[in-house]
């Protein structure tokens, strides 16, 4: 399976934010709440990852609710690709 690396996902995340005139901080510990990265932005990012890999990423909401930092987003998407 064609899989995206954490760094590639980070680039896509930066694009999602850039489209909204927001910037992705370099620090993985940065809080999503402060950056303004919301759950539908996560959806958009997941769908962009899908586009790149050609594999659907389906997941339940509890996983989504645990996400609080940039690092959490990247970890979750890396992990989802392995499922």
């Amino acid at each position: 399976m064609n899989e995206l690396s954490r760094a590639q996902i980070r680039d896509l995340m930066a694009q999602v934010l850039k489209n909204q005139d927001k910037e992705l901080p370099a620090d993985d510990a940065a809080q999503l709440r402060e950056i303004g990265f919301r759950s539908l932005d996560f959806s958009e990012l997941a769908l962009r990852v899908e586009d790149e890999t050609g594999e659907e990423l389906n997941f339940d909401a509890p996983g989504l609710r645990r996400i609080a930092t940039v690092g959490d987003v990247l970890d979750f998407l890396v992990e989802l690709q392995h499922q």
Binding site: S39, S43, A46, E56, L57, N58, F59, A61, P62, L64
Partner: peptide
């Protein structure tokens, strides 16, 4: 159910 529609598998 507990999943956003866009990310719910069609079989689910």
């Amino acid at each position: 159910q507990d999943s956003l529609h866009a990310h719910t598998a069609t079989e689910d």
